[in-house]
Protein backbone atom coordinates (compact mmCIF):
# COMPACT_ATOMS: atom_id res chain seq x y z
CA UNK A 1 0.00 0.00 0.00
CA UNK A 2 2.50 2.56 1.23
CA UNK A 3 5.60 0.40 0.92
CA UNK A 4 7.74 2.03 3.58
CA UNK A 5 4.94 2.16 6.13
CA UNK A 6 3.87 -1.43 5.46
CA UNK A 7 7.37 -2.80 5.95
CA UNK A 8 7.94 -0.55 8.96
CA UNK A 9 4.70 -1.68 10.61
CA UNK A 10 5.45 -5.36 10.07
CA UNK A 11 9.00 -4.95 11.39
CA UNK A 12 7.88 -2.89 14.40
CA UNK A 13 5.12 -5.33 15.26
CA UNK A 14 7.44 -8.35 15.08
CA UNK A 15 10.01 -6.48 17.17
CA UNK A 16 7.45 -5.78 19.90
CA UNK A 17 6.33 -9.42 19.70
CA UNK A 18 9.87 -10.71 20.24
CA UNK A 19 10.48 -8.18 23.02
CA UNK A 20 7.25 -9.33 24.70
CA UNK A 21 8.22 -13.00 24.36
CA UNK A 22 11.54 -12.18 26.06
CA UNK A 23 9.66 -10.36 28.85
CA UNK A 24 7.33 -13.32 29.30
CA UNK A 25 10.21 -15.82 29.34
CA UNK A 26 11.99 -13.68 31.96
CA UNK A 27 8.77 -13.94 33.97
CA UNK A 28 8.17 -10.18 34.14
CA UNK A 29 4.85 -8.37 33.79
CA UNK A 30 4.17 -5.74 31.14
CA UNK A 31 5.89 -2.41 31.67
CA UNK A 32 5.45 1.13 30.37
CA UNK A 33 8.02 0.28 27.70
CA UNK A 34 5.52 -2.15 26.18
CA UNK A 35 2.79 0.46 26.40
CA UNK A 36 5.02 3.05 24.68
CA UNK A 37 6.00 0.67 21.87
CA UNK A 38 2.36 -0.34 21.37
CA UNK A 39 1.40 3.35 21.21
CA UNK A 40 3.98 3.96 18.45
CA UNK A 41 2.72 0.92 16.53
CA UNK A 42 -0.83 2.16 16.98
CA UNK A 43 0.00 5.56 15.49
CA UNK A 44 1.39 3.83 12.40
CA UNK A 45 -1.64 1.56 12.13
CA UNK A 46 -3.99 4.54 12.39
CA UNK A 47 -2.09 6.32 9.61
CA UNK A 48 -2.39 3.15 7.53
CA UNK A 49 -6.12 2.92 8.28
CA UNK A 50 -6.64 6.58 7.43
CA UNK A 51 -4.81 6.34 4.11
CA UNK A 52 -6.50 3.03 3.28
CA UNK A 53 -10.03 4.24 4.02
CA UNK A 54 -9.39 7.48 2.12
CA UNK A 55 -8.20 5.47 -0.89
CA UNK A 56 -11.31 3.26 -0.79
CA UNK A 57 -13.57 6.33 -0.49
CA UNK A 58 -11.70 7.88 -3.40
CA UNK A 59 -12.57 4.84 -5.50
CA UNK A 60 -9.01 3.59 -5.94
CA UNK A 61 -9.16 0.81 -3.36
CA UNK A 62 -9.13 -2.92 -3.97
CA UNK A 63 -12.22 -4.73 -5.25
CA UNK A 64 -13.11 -6.35 -1.90
CA UNK A 65 -13.39 -2.96 -0.23
CA UNK A 66 -15.50 -4.08 2.76
CA UNK A 67 -13.01 -6.81 3.67
CA UNK A 68 -10.13 -4.40 3.10
CA UNK A 69 -11.58 -1.80 5.46
CA UNK A 70 -12.38 -4.57 7.96
CA UNK A 71 -8.73 -5.64 8.04
CA UNK A 72 -7.59 -2.01 8.33
CA UNK A 73 -9.81 -1.44 11.35
CA UNK A 74 -9.06 -4.87 12.82
CA UNK A 75 -5.31 -4.26 12.66
CA UNK A 76 -5.75 -0.90 14.41
CA UNK A 77 -8.05 -2.27 17.14
CA UNK A 78 -5.99 -5.32 18.16
CA UNK A 79 -2.99 -3.53 19.80
CA UNK A 80 -5.32 -1.33 21.88
CA UNK A 81 -7.45 -4.25 23.04
CA UNK A 82 -4.39 -6.42 23.72
CA UNK A 83 -2.70 -3.53 25.57
CA UNK A 84 -5.58 -3.13 27.99
CA UNK A 85 -6.12 -6.87 28.41
CA UNK A 86 -2.42 -7.55 28.97
CA UNK A 87 -1.78 -4.58 31.25
CA UNK A 88 -4.30 -5.65 33.90
CA UNK A 89 -2.53 -9.02 34.15
CA UNK A 90 0.40 -8.49 36.49
CA UNK A 91 2.25 -11.64 35.47
CA UNK A 92 4.21 -13.01 32.50
CA UNK A 93 0.89 -13.69 30.74
CA UNK A 94 0.42 -9.96 30.17
CA UNK A 95 3.36 -9.65 27.76
CA UNK A 96 2.32 -13.04 26.33
CA UNK A 97 -0.96 -11.43 25.23
CA UNK A 98 0.98 -8.56 23.61
CA UNK A 99 3.23 -11.08 21.82
CA UNK A 100 0.28 -12.91 20.28
CA UNK A 101 -1.38 -9.65 19.24
CA UNK A 102 1.85 -8.42 17.65
CA UNK A 103 2.21 -11.68 15.69
CA UNK A 104 -1.38 -11.32 14.43
CA UNK A 105 -0.96 -7.72 13.22
CA UNK A 106 1.67 -8.62 10.55
CA UNK A 107 -0.64 -11.39 9.30
CA UNK A 108 -3.42 -8.83 8.86
CA UNK A 109 -1.04 -6.40 7.15
CA UNK A 110 0.09 -9.23 4.86
CA UNK A 111 -3.52 -9.94 3.89
CA UNK A 112 -4.07 -6.19 3.30
CA UNK A 113 -1.07 -6.12 1.02
CA UNK A 114 -2.36 -9.16 -0.91
CA UNK A 115 -5.73 -7.48 -1.41
CA UNK A 116 -4.02 -4.25 -2.39
CA UNK A 117 -1.86 -5.88 -5.05
CA UNK A 118 -4.71 -8.14 -6.15
CA UNK A 119 -2.95 -11.45 -5.55
CA UNK A 120 -5.75 -12.77 -3.35
Amino acid sequence: MIDGLTIGLIAASLLIAVFSVVTAVRNRPMSMVHVGLLALLEIGLLVQAGVGVATVLGGDGPEASATFVGYLIGAAVIPIAAGFWGFVERSRWGPAVIAVACFVVPVLIGRLEQMWTGTA
Binding site: A82, W85, G86, E89, S91, W93, G94, A96, V97, V100, A101
Partner: peptide, 9 residues
Protein backbone atom coordinates in the same frame (compact mmCIF):
# COMPACT_ATOMS: atom_id res chain seq x y z
CA UNK B 1 -6.13 -14.74 34.77
CA UNK B 2 -2.70 -16.26 34.30
CA UNK B 3 -2.51 -18.44 31.19
CA UNK B 4 -6.26 -17.90 30.85
CA UNK B 5 -5.50 -14.26 30.02
CA UNK B 6 -3.73 -15.44 26.87
CA UNK B 7 -6.47 -17.96 26.07
CA UNK B 8 -9.15 -15.25 26.27
CA UNK B 9 -7.02 -12.98 24.07
Amino acid sequence: SGPGRLLVA
